[in-house]
Every structure is written in C-alpha cells, then in structure tokens.
Design a protein around this nucleic acid. Structure first.
Length: 593
RNA sequence: GGUCCAGUAGCUCAGUUGGAUUAGAGCAACGGCCUUCUAAGCCGUAGGUCCCAGGUUCGAGCCCUGGCUGGAUCACCA
C-alpha cells in the first residue's frame, strides 16, 4: 500500500501541477497515534513542486488520492501533513488475507545469495556472554534475511590453529597427560579452557621469575620455558608432526563436542564449518603473489607489508619475519576461497566492533589485490556486552559463562513457573521443556531487543526479567491466545477463515489489524537496517496492544456468534504473528505457561 | 596522540533517511484491578536542561562545528 501510495502521489503531482516528482522523495509513514488516521504523507518536500502552501498542496493530493483509492474513507490536513484513513472494510479484508501472507517469505526486489559468518570461536576457551550476543545476532539475521526471500549460507569459521591451542596442548602434556574430559567430569570445552588458564598462570609466574633475574619484560616473555615449548609445538604442528597433530585433533574434538552441546541448547546452526587450519595457507600464497606483483613490499627481515598511506592508514604487516602469516592474511585467504566457491552477492561478517579497523583494512587489501567483490563484504559490527562493573575480563575471571548463564535462566524460569503453578497437567518432561523455552526466550529477547550496533550492559543478577518488555511477556501473550483457542474448540467453535460480512469492528480491533498489517514492513526494515531489535519492538507492541484488548473485551463471551468468531480469528492471527516474529529471533513460544 | 563509535528518566533501552504546542517503553517506587477467556496481565501516579555551547532552517534528540565524558582501535595476538 505504501508503495502504491507513493506512486499515486507522484502521478497526482504530475496531473495536478505538471510536476515530475520521483516517488522516492515522497514520505509515507504511519500516522502518529495522537491522530486518528492510518497513514500520513508529509507534503513539505512537495511544496517546491506544487508552488502552493503546504495545506493547499496536501488538500489537492488528498482529493486526488481519495478519488484513486476507494479504500480511503477520509483524509484531513494538519499543516503539511496529509492524514489518510482507510475504511474498516479495507482493514477487515486485510485480516482475511493475513494468514496467507505470513505463511510465505517476502518477495525481494532482487533475490540474493547472502553468506553470513558468525560465532567463529577459538578452540581454547568456552563460550561466554560475548559469544552469546554474536551467536544470537548472527542466527536472527540469518532467519530475517531468509524470511525476506534471499538464499542464506550460514558459516562458522573455527579458529582451530595457532599459538592459543598449542598453549592448551602444552599445559595438557605438562599437567594432565593422561587426562580427558570424561575423567575430569568436565565438558570438553571447559576442560581445555581450564588447561589454557593453567598455562597462562604458570606462564605469568615464569615471566615474573625471569624478570627478577634481571630480564626485561619482552625478553622474559620470549624466554619463559612454557612459551618456548608451546612455540615448539606450533612449529611441529606446521611441519605436520604426527604425534602433535594427533594430540591437536584429540583436544580440538573435545572442544567441538562441548561447543555442540552449547550450540544445540542455544538453537544455533550452520550450513558450513570452515576450519582455519585448512585455509590459513591460502592467504599466504595470495600475499606472496601480491608481493611479486609489487602490491606489497618486503622489509630487510623478510616480513611482508602493505602500505596503506594513501588510505590515511598505517602500514600493515601481512607475513611475519619467520614466514608465518597473521590473522588478516588468513582472512584474505578465506574470503577469496568463499567468493571463488560460492560467489555470494553479499557477505556479512558478524563480528564485534573492536574489529572495525580489521575489516576496514581487509576490504582495502582485497581491493588492492584486484578483487572487485570486496565491496560485497559487509561487517556487521555489534557492540560489546559489558557487566555493571565494566568490561568482561577473562584474565580476572570476570566472565559470564554461556552454559552457566543458561542454567541460571532455567532455574529462575523453573522456580517462577512452579510458583505460578499453571502447568500442573503436564509431565515433568513437558514442564522442563516449557521452562527451557521461557529461559531461552528471556535471554534471547533481552539481547536481541537492543540495537546490535550499541554496547549493552548486562547485569547477571537483575537484567533478565520476566515481566514487562521481555520475551516471556510475549510468550505469555501467545499462550493466553492459544488457551482461548483451545477453549473455543471445546465449545465446537473453530477459527474461521473469513470474516462474516456484517461485522463491525471496534477501534481497538481495527488497531490490532493495522498492526498485523505492518508486519512485513518491519520484517523488511529489520533486514535492511540489519537490526533484529525492530522485530522485537514490533512483537512487544503487538503483544501489549493485544493484552489491552484482551482485558477490555471478552472473546468467548462476545455478544453474538459472528462477533465471537471474528474476535477469535483476530486473536488467533495475533498469536500466529507473534509466533512468527519470535521465530525470526530464534525464540519459541509455548502453548501454555 | 591519530582514527572510529557512543552519551535520552534512578537503572536498561526505543525514538526508521530532520517533522505534528505534550520526547516514549520496561524495570525499580507509589496507588488501584483476580467469583469473569491464563494477574508472567491490565489501569493510574511520579520521574527529563535529550552531555555542554554555538550554527544550519519553516522546524533539531536526530544534521554541521567546537568542547566534555566514556568505550574501541592503531601489535611480528586472533
């Protein structure tokens, strides 16, 4: 409707004033709630074409549009705002077609193949709150983009090689050479993570000791025996030493197993797993080729650099003096590989804003290397998660572990739910399912409702609420609706497919239908702006609006059968829309809670 | 120091390419509403110098300039 309004307005401008106006400059927005109308056209931008006062221009267009669209029941003009009201018949008709509408993905102007990379963990540490935000955002964006009618490839780049995993390996050999997650009773990623911490601690004390013996900080770091051993492991790994590779595989597999459990609980999936160990060499050879071609340069110590001076940036190292490649070099390799293999129309990297510079440089380097597709890379840069006392610091143990957090959410959900006691007719297994659904809903919603670009504060004690603007609030609204539908079915009343013709909807009902009608705009905006928060806000608005309605009017005790059916149908569609919107956030909604 | 990002109620956040004499939610606080479809709900009260100062225009929380405060980044870590 928006689009056709824009077109019609442009056409009207031509017919009334003989002015050529591009439809794009015409602003059509939802009418502010203080005014009783549905859509508003802002005419200020049109005044220079009409050469009339805003009021007169608005009036002229109003007359024209009302003539073109029979569905427009009335219009009125306030200053430069043309408020259009649509007839209730029009809106009731919209409700009739709503169920069909929400079953299909949107049809995009041009369908794209979009690759989305997210999660991308290191294999030396368990997942924490920061990863949670990354995973939730990446997962939600994948769902949203897909719902907009695009093809999505979800990819996880696992950082499985490098000095960090060698540190864990070194600690394993040193402290627990026959150990395993099973023997320790720990999850695989936790077990390896603890070894990593052990390494770091002994490393630290080794450095302190060497410093006391008179070495500089830098020297001490180099000479610490633990570090030297870890480096030796890395070297052996790169040389393909059988024993080292076997150990590396064994430990990584422990970690993967642990990650899988966490991913599964979070409801996170991927279409592809990339392992850095398999791609890290590619970037190196590309850079060396670039060196041959004179795009990069070599220093005396044989390290390879890119000069980014003409971009207003520094020089950037690409290959170390010992011939090994750095992070960005590997990223060049994986990017080239992906574009060669899949040729996506867009490649979104969901990575924290601390890496803004990295991606800026990555795109520049790819362009320098002559890859035109570099412009198809988008860094979806999200803000950090901070604790009330400041940034999370893994070294000081100030991290919120992903598994622990989910456990806590579950416990809260369970005790709250048990207190309310509305699930008495369910089995224990079913109950646990509901607790989990609510717990994850609360957590996901809490994180996703916030604009990804912004840093957010997470207070483990009180942040995640179950009242107000929360996941459970929306889940609850859905459960309520389902309960009504079930009751109706017991009364042998089915949700009708079409509204009977003599229905006269009240204002609240029309408001709800209008809100339902806007769902696809929200879905499109969420994809365009890359902001799942828009979906969350919409779902909240809809749930809130419905709860008010629910409180004010009885569905099952409506004055007559036709009205009852209409209200039931309306409620049902609100429920389905909530369910759908929440599904785009990766959140499930229960039948009862 | 250079670059980038942010600053809205006590707290956590909305505010969609600048729009409507009154800047919105939720939490926390206070006061109401369960004999009625699920009270994880609904209604109400209170709470603001939109960091500060200029500028741009019909019109600024939003745009520009300069400050202040906080964060990120500028590694032969990833």
């Amino acid at each position: 409707m928006r689009k056709s309004l824009k077109k019609a307005t442009a056409k009207g401008m031509k017919e009334i004033y003989g002015a050529d106006v591009a439809p794009d400059i015409i602003q059509v927005q939802r009418t502010k709630s203080e005014f009783s109308a549905d859509l508003t056209i802002v005419v200020f931008p049109l005044v220079k074409y009409s050469r009339k006062k805003p009021e007169n221009t608005a009036n002229d267009i109003g007359v024209y549009l009302k003539h073109v669209f029979p569905d427009i029941s009335s219009y009125h003009v306030i200053k430069g705002f043309l408020n259009l009201s649509f007839s209730s018949e029009f809106w009731l008709q919209q409700l009739n077609s709503h169920s069909r509408a929400i079953q299909n993905a949107l049809v995009p102007e041009s369908k794209m193949k979009i690759m989305i990379e997210y999660s991308s963990p290191n294999t030396n540490k368990p997942l924490h709150l920061g990863h949670i935000r990354n995973n939730f955002i990446g997962d939600a964006m994948s769902r949203i983009v897909k719902a907009n009618g695009h093809d999505v490839i979800r990819v996880n780049l696992i950082n499985d090689r490098g000095i960090h995993i060698c540190k864990s390996m070194q600690a394993y050999l040193n402290f627990d050479p026959d150990g395993s997650p099973e023997k320790s009773g720990l999850k695989g990623d936790k077990y390896v993570g603890e070894l990593y911490v052990k390494f770091e601690n002994t490393y630290k004390s080794e450095i302190d000791k060497l410093k006391k013996e008179g070495l500089s900080e830098e020297e001490a770091k180099k000479q610490a025996p633990g570090m030297q051993k870890a480096r030796a492991l890395l070297k052996k790994w790169e040389e393909g030493d059988d024993k080292v590779i076997a150990l590396w595989e064994k430990m990584n597999n422990w970690v993967y197993k642990g990650f899988d459990t966490t991913y599964q609980r979070m409801g996170i999936e991927f279409d592809q797993l990339n392992h850095e160990s398999k791609t890290y060499k590619k970037g190196r050879s590309i850079v060396l080729k670039g060196l041959e071609d004179g795009i990069f340069y070599e220093k005396d110590d044989h390290s390879v650099w890119a000069d980014l001076g003409d971009e207003g940036l520094d020089e950037k190292i690409l290959i170390r003096s010992d011939g090994t490649s750095v992070y960005i070099t590997q990223d060049i390799g994986t990017a080239v590989e992906r574009f060669e293999k899949y040729n996506p129309d867009k490649h979104i990297y969901v990575v924290g804003n601390e890496q803004n510079y990295h991606f800026q440089v990555l795109k520049i380097l790819l362009k320098k290397l002559g890859y035109d597709w570099a412009d198809k890379i988008e860094h979806m840069s999200y803000g950090m998660v901070e604790l009330p006392e400041g940034k999370m610091k893994s070294r000081e143990g100030k991290v919120v572990d992903a598994d622990d957090l989910m456990d806590e959410m579950f416990q809260t959900s369970k005790s709250m739910s048990s207190e309310l006691g509305k699930l008495s007719d369910l089995t224990d297994e079913q109950k646990n399912g509901v607790y989990e659904t609510i717990a994850m809903g609360a957590l996901k919603y809490f994180i996703l409702k916030i604009d990804p670009r912004k840093n957010m504060v997470f207070n483990p004690e009180e942040s995640v609420d179950f009242n107000g603007n929360t996941g459970p609030f929306i889940q609850y609204t859905h459960a309520r609706i389902r309960s009504v539908v079930r009751k109706a079915e017991k009364m042998n009343i089915r949700v009708p497919r079409l509204i009977s013709e003599d229905i006269r909807a009240n204002e609240k009902e029309l408001d709800l239908i209008k809100l339902l009608y806007h769902y696809n705009m929200v879905l499109k905006d969420a994809a365009d702006e890359m902001d799942p928060g828009l979906i969350a806000n919409y779902a909240f608005e809809l749930a809130k609006e419905f709860n008010q309605y629910y409180h004010e009017y009885s569905i099952l005790k409506a004055e007559n059968g036709n009205l009852l059916q209409f209200r039931l149908m309306l409620a049902y569609h609100v429920g389905e829309t909530l369910k759908l919107m929440m599904s785009y956030l990766g959140i499930q909604v229960p039948e009862k809670m």
